[in-house]
């Protein structure tokens, strides 16, 4: 479960301060697929980042699976992320110097036998996940040798590698054409169901949001609708 209480975030641009989030309160129960929508600059990605422990809020609380993460040190947050959160980004964000298989395996290398892995099934699971996203033949390819859709599928496989209870996706189809976007989305939802994760997805795409259990809309740093 993800719980957010009175969350605010202010950014210093150097010349002035911008209030990005202005007191957000929400609860996303375990296993729910929640979409966050809103126009550019409404604070969607910032909210996602704060819920994932990628940044610290200016004030308020974020509670992930009963653990309050808002006041944590950087390395404690990293440990929480490693165990509890998987990520899928708009621009794939694979490590360019690692092969597809090594990229999928990376969370396992970083977090060891977290979430019930016995420590020896890492490479096996990486291959299974690559197979699940249809890239079993391309495990030894570097990101630069893969298409955008393929890179995003590798990113999907990586996100599920350590069986995180929560998955955060930031415009996962934003950089893909419609065919590839649709394929990635299908995979994401299918894998989410199979792995029983809580999925939080930031998107501009209403069609995509329509497939979610719940749609939260932000405007000017506030929740304007929650359906």
């Amino acid at each position: 479960m993800i719980e957010v209480r009175q969350l605010t975030k202010t950014a210093d641009t150097g010349t002035h301060r911008v209030e990005i989030l202005k007191g957000i309160n929400l609860i996303i129960p375990r296993g729910q697929f929640a979409a966050i929508m809103g126009p550019s600059g409404s604070g969607k990605s910032t909210l996602l980042g704060l819920m994932a422990g990628l940044d610290s809020p200016t004030s308020g609380q974020v509670i992930l699976d009963g653990v309050e993460i808002s006041g944590m040190e950087e390395d404690q947050l990293a440990a929480i992320r490693g165990r509890k959160v998987g990520f899928v980004f708009q621009s794939y964000q694979l490590i360019p110097t690692l092969t597809a298989e090594e990229n999928v395996l990376l969370p396992f290398d970083l977090n060891g036998s977290a979430n019930g892995n016995d420590g020896s099934d890492g490479p096996k699971r990486a291959l299974e996940l690559l197979e699940a996203v249809g890239l079993s033949e391309r495990g030894d390819h570097y990101p630069v040798q893969l298409s955008g859709g393929e890179q995003q599928r590798v990113a999907l496989a990586r996100a599920f590698m350590v069986r995180p209870p929560i998955l955060m996706a930031d415009e996962p189809t934003g950089n893909l054409d419609s065919a590839n976007g649709s394929h990635v989305l299908d995979l994401l939802i299918e894998m989410n169901r199979r792995e029983q994760t809580t999925l939080v997805l930031v998107t501009h795409d209403k069609e995509l949001a329509a497939r979610a259990d719940r749609c939260i809309t932000l405007q000017d740093g506030r929740i304007c609708s929650d359906e």
């Binding site: 994932a52 950087e74 390395d75 992320r81 490590i95 969370p107 970083l110 977090n111 350590v162």
Partner: peptide, 16 residues
């Protein structure tokens, strides 16, 4: 910078 940020997103600690 991006690679380091990704590693951190994936749970990498500073020392790692």
């Amino acid at each position: 910078l991006d690679s380091i940020a990704i590693l951190k997103c994936l749970g990498a600690r500073t020392h790692q």
